[in-house]
Amino acid sequence: MDTKKELIIQAFENLDAEMLDVLLDDDRSYQDVPKQTFVDALKKHFAELRTYDDTKFDFKSYKGQCDFCQKGKSGYSFVNSEGQCYMSLVFEEDEDNFTDIYSCGSFVTEGVDVENTWIGISFFEEDKTDFRYSPEILSEEEKCLRGVAEIKGEVEENGILTSDFYIYWYERYEYLDPIKRLFEKKSYKYSEEIGHYLFVVRSVVTDFKKNDLAKSIYFEFLNFPVITKDAIIDWLIKADHALQYAKYGIGNECNFKQDYFEDKYFKYRLSELYYYHSVAEILNKYFDWIPETNPLTEADKGYGQYDDDQDLPF
């Protein structure tokens, strides 16, 4: 007869969160969260895994141990016949039961070649059993909620975001972006929504700030008497370097008559980015003439010339 611990391992192999709901102890915490929170995350994770096309669900458990954060603690990786690991877990145990279970990103698996490990489950700080609000966290939560309310209120009132609003809003709340906590290994539920809106608006803010530069580039293009590859190649390289990624097109739905463009979340005033959009359309039209490796961009490597680097917390 299988022991309780053996049944738990089998449930993980079979992606059977319902069985884990029965087997795991209600009065214990797992991965620092209540049992039910842990199981609910597994249910969601397993359901998503089952939507992956061409995945073999013949997962087996392979022993191993943590090599970093909980160095020496043992557990199992769950790996299928193609070497795909859906998660590695440390299992702390006593004689009859597992006393804790938590995912591990520094796991050394024994007895099998792991080709790839998928992202496992994680939790917000508020989910943890020992979470307590501090004055600093309460203040930050209030600011996040206020920022979300402001952008939602602007859309509800005007139906569109203009540069007068989104530049001010982004610069006011950018410091709350969860990406700036990348190395803290902590995430908070209250910052998730504002982080989403900051991500959505960031590209529009970046494009708007390049609109004046795009204007001068646009008028340079208008001075070409005839359009041939030889005639405009230097311009294409210069424009592609100055407006990185513009050559891939706008990717948004534009309504020129009503003067707006939109992504799947917001509408923005089209005329405020007229020159950036115009140059982007030109670059996209002559995409095949642009060198795959831009020589000006290559020359800048190592000198901190990339605007996108400003978004990283280092």
Rank of each mutant, 00 (worst) to 15 (best):
K247M: 13
F224D: 02
Y170L: 11
E174K: 13
E171Y: 03
F57R: 06
E82W: 01
F183A: 06
W289H: 07
I9N: 02
Y276D: 04
I101K: 01
K285L: 15
R202Q: 13
F123G: 09
E171G: 04
S77E: 09
E281S: 12
E281A: 15
V155T: 07
N97M: 13
I121C: 05
F124G: 04
T99I: 13
F261D: 05
E157G: 00
D16S: 04
E184N: 12
K247S: 10
F287L: 14
S278P: 00
I250P: 07
F165Q: 09
Q70Y: 09
G195M: 03
D21K: 12
E142T: 10
L161A: 07
Y173M: 04
P225L: 07
K143N: 04
L42P: 06
E115H: 05
V90P: 11
D300Q: 10
E125N: 12
D307V: 11
T206F: 11
Q258S: 05
R269K: 11
P225H: 10
Y248C: 11
T3S: 14
T109Q: 02
E292R: 08
E126A: 03
L270P: 01
Y218W: 14
D25A: 15
I237N: 07
M1P: 08
Y218C: 07
N252W: 15
F208G: 03
D32W: 09
L213G: 06
S88W: 00
K215A: 08
N294R: 00
K189M: 12
V205F: 04
G195N: 04
M1E: 11
E48F: 12
Y76G: 10
Y275H: 13
N158M: 02
S191P: 02
K5D: 09
G251K: 08
Y276M: 10
D308T: 14
C69R: 02
W235S: 10
E93A: 11
I9Q: 04
K215T: 08
D308Y: 04
K247F: 04
F266G: 05
E126M: 11
I121M: 05
A242W: 11
D27A: 09
E13G: 04
E140V: 13
A11I: 11
D130E: 14
D308G: 10
E174H: 13
E126R: 01
K215D: 06
Y306S: 15
Y248N: 12
T3M: 10
Y260V: 11
V148H: 06
K215H: 10
S134T: 15
D2E: 15
F219G: 01
E156P: 01
D234W: 00
R132E: 13
Y286E: 14
K185N: 14
D212N: 14
V205W: 04
Q36I: 15
D94G: 03
D16C: 05
K60C: 03
G195Y: 01
I8L: 12
K180F: 13
E184H: 12
K186C: 12
